[in-house]
Design a protein around this nucleic acid. Structure first.
Lengths: 158, 158
DNA sequence: TGATATTGGTATCAACTGAAACCATTTGTG
DNA sequence: CACAAATGGTTTCAGTTGATACCAATATCA
């Protein structure tokens, strides 16, 4: 028996990559043109709005960005007066990141816009389908990180 | 009423990006270490195995890669003796790409491996779910490309 | 306590990517 | 036919990215 030939169009890693890039480009363009934010910067703002005072390492873990990206985004945002990076009293190496008032203001501006974009992009799915999509993606992600614990983490590679 | 706050972990563009990057990295690492192929190169081989003799522009359309990436991948593969690029008799600008025997041989090696990886990565989904995932992704992709016809195409920008 | 390994964060560098400029050819269109 | 516009491909260049090396501070442990 011949194995069914591989059709690129049916190949899930390919499909996933194409769709994801399409969405990313779309969203990234909006952040950039409307707010001058890169995606890493936006992620940082978003996560700090949820949990203030995180260290860069903690942010890296939550957002699955590597520490170099976090560092760059953090400095850029600090330069724009959107976040502060206070020395941590307990650990002189670490810096606790917080949104400034300006940062909080920006977040208040960006967040609704982001939700609107999400709604627009995924308007082609009904709510149950959108949930289903999230669930499936989460399962894939979990299984993949379980298989390779070092994958995508911000932890130093051995 | 206060809008529900944006939780990054629930934000679909973010989820999609994280999962896709995880899968991509996983797969790309395998292509590279096992066969010395980059993802663009692998896509080119895969698409030529399905339809031989395509022009680079046609490949770009099918794989959603821009023409620079296609050009680079094509030249790299030609350099390795995996594809030929014959001058098209009808259009002296175009080149018809074909897999050489070696290219075909490599594809015969890579394809099963790719399918096995796909199976392993998505083993956490039952077949119906995998299909559902493809369907949902395709819908998102279609709606997004309909909204912005220039997105992701290899066509020259105006 | 000192030696060693770890960890938070930054700097550096090489690779990848895509936009724009470019060349050569082909396709309109008068 | 001639000339503008469009198309296939390549080159160039600038921006982004992540691996690696690195520095400083902390943790571990004899």
């Amino acid at each position: 028996m011949t194995a069914t030939p591989l059709r690129l169009d049916d190949f899930l890693p390919y499909r996933l990559s194409v769709t994801s890039n399409l969405v990313s480009d779309h969203v990234a363009g909006a952040y950039r043109s409307l707010f001058g934010l890169s995606v890493p910067e936006w992620r940082l703002v978003a996560v700090l709005a949820e949990a203030d005072g995180l260290s860069q390492a903690a942010i890296g873990e939550r957002t699955r960005m590597d520490k170099v990206s976090v560092s760059r985004a953090a400095r850029a945002l600090e330069g724009r007066g959107l976040v502060t990076r206070l020395a941590d009293a307990r650990d002189a190496r670490a810096r606790a990141l917080s949104l400034t008032d300006a940062g909080r203001g920006l977040h208040a501006l960006v967040a609704p816009r982001a939700k609107a974009m999400e709604a627009a992009i995924f308007a082609c799915l009904d709510p149950a389908e959108a949930t289903q999509l999230k669930v499936l993606l989460a399962r894939v992600e979990a299984s993949l990180t379980a298989a390779d614990p070092t994958a995508g983490s911000a932890a130093d590679k051995k």
